[in-house]
Design a protein around this nucleic acid. Structure first.
Lengths: 126, 126
DNA sequence: CTACTTGTTCGCATTGAGCTAGAACAACAG
DNA sequence: CTGTTGTTCTAGCTCAATGCGAACAAGTAG
């Protein structure tokens, strides 16, 4: 898995690390059961602080993508790469909607509308 | 048009103001040719600094949604912006989720998870 | 058991972004 | 002209992100 960071980006380093792992899940370079590099060593590699790496891992933990335990490290618990793609699409949708000033209710309404529209459509199983 | 701000939000005040105007454009309460409230008066109303309001207006100016001139104020120069982008993102999300075999409940759960994740920041929200 | 690894938690310093504050200035309307 | 409004400038404040160091807890390996 390739973890690269950009100090000049507006995205926080922790979020960039989390994004790298998500990308790895999508392209298959990271799979369920894999162990992420120890925070200390990855921090040394990227020349950033250990806490920053752990903060990135924590984001993934909150998303239930990995499990963390002292002594054992960070282990990927994600189900399927497809669900990660879906999650990414969901994240993108939420970010865009909130940027447009939509409330939580607005977002749910829009989703319901699309769900109804989609169920009337053809089965997209190809 | 209703402009409301939330000091506890992780979204900047300027961005919230811009979002309020965008929302107004979407729901029709703000139309092309309308004049936005003067920065000083809106700042007094919201009990925030004038510069913060101007920064929010500046965001909209950069998006070519409004035009600003001294003495005349901020005037809306565009019709409803591409809220279609949000809809498009939602449709993409739904399509991907359903192809992955997710049920309606799964989709709603995922959305709720992401809504919570997107709201994370200062402790004690929810 | 011990030794080592690794995540966890704590406190504190630094940096930059965001917000506030005040003032002076320029463009526009009446 | 006077008054309004955006623009620009300087300065200070707060807070999140990051960095740094240290101790601690849980797990692994011997």
């Amino acid at each position: 898995m390739l973890v690269s960071i950009d100090h000049s980006s507006s995205v926080s380093l922790a979020e960039q690390i989390a994004a790298s792992v998500r990308r790895g899940l999508v392209d298959g370079s990271v799979r369920k059961g894999d162990r992420l590099p120890p925070a200390r060593s990855l921090a040394r590699t990227l020349d950033i602080n250990m806490h920053t790496v752990l903060r990135g891992y924590q984001i993934l933990k909150n998303e239930h993508l990995i499990d963390m335990r002292p002594g054992r490290g960070a282990v990927v618990t994600a189900d399927a790469p497809a669900s990660t793609l879906v999650t990414e699409a969901c994240r993108h949708f939420v970010a865009l909607a909130q940027r447009a000033g939509m409330s939580r209710t607005d977002i749910l309404d829009l989703l319901h509308t699309q769900l109804h529209a989609a169920t009337q459509g053809p089965p997209g199983l190809d």
